[in-house]
Simulated assay, not measured.
Amino acid sequence: MTRTHIPGILAMAAVVVASNILVQFLFGQWLTWGAFTYPIAFLVTDLMNRLYGKAAARRVVFAGFIVGVACSFVGTQIMGEFGPLVTWRIAIGSGLAFLTAQLLDVAIFDRLREGRWWRAPLASTLVGSSVDTALFFTIAFSGALSFIEPGNDVSWAGEALPLLGAGPVVPLWVSLAVADWMVKLCLALVALIPFRLIVSWALSSPRMA
Rank of each mutant, 00 (worst) to 15 (best):
L145V: 06
L145P: 07
L145R: 04
L145A: 05
L145S: 09
S146G: 10
S146T: 08
S146D: 09
F147L: 12
I148H: 07
E149K: 02
E149G: 08
P150K: 13
P150T: 06
G151W: 00
G151S: 04
N152Y: 04
N152I: 01
N152M: 03
D153V: 11
D153N: 15
D153P: 14
V154A: 05
S155G: 05
S155D: 08
S155H: 03
W156H: 04
W156R: 05
W156V: 01
A157F: 15
A157R: 09
G158T: 13
G158Y: 11
E159I: 14
A160S: 15
A160D: 15
P162Q: 03
P162R: 06
P162L: 10
L163M: 07
L163K: 03
L163Q: 11
L163G: 08
L164W: 02
L164D: 10
G165R: 00
G165M: 04
G167K: 08
G167A: 12
G167C: 12
G167D: 05
P168Y: 09
P168W: 09
P168R: 07
P168Q: 10
P168N: 06
V169G: 03
V170S: 03
V170C: 07
V170A: 12
V170P: 05
V170R: 02
P171W: 00
P171L: 00
P171E: 04
L172M: 14
L172N: 15
L172E: 15
W173Y: 14
W173V: 14
W173D: 14
V174A: 09
V174E: 11
V174D: 14
V174N: 13
S175I: 05
S175D: 02
S175E: 12
L176W: 10
L176F: 12
L176V: 11
L176C: 08
A177I: 08
A177G: 12
A177D: 12
A177Q: 08
V178D: 12
V178Y: 13
V178T: 15
V178C: 09
A179T: 12
A179I: 14
D180H: 15
D180A: 12
W181Y: 15
W181D: 15
M182W: 00
M182K: 02
M182S: 00
M182E: 02
M182V: 04
V183S: 06
V183W: 04
V183I: 13
K184H: 10
K184V: 08
K184D: 05
K184Q: 09
L185S: 08
L185M: 09
L185Y: 09
L185D: 01
C186S: 08
C186G: 15
C186V: 06
L187Q: 04
A188W: 10
A188R: 01
L189Q: 02
L189D: 02
V190W: 00
V190A: 14
V190Q: 02
V190Y: 01
V190N: 03
A191H: 01
A191F: 02
A191I: 00
L192G: 04
L192H: 08
L192E: 12
L192N: 07
L192S: 11
I193L: 13
P194F: 08
P194Y: 10
F195T: 06
F195I: 03
R196E: 07
R196S: 10
R196W: 07
R196L: 06
L197D: 03
L197Y: 05
L197V: 02
L197G: 01
I198F: 00
I198V: 03
I198N: 01
V199M: 00
V199Q: 01
S200C: 03
W201N: 05
W201A: 09
A202Q: 01
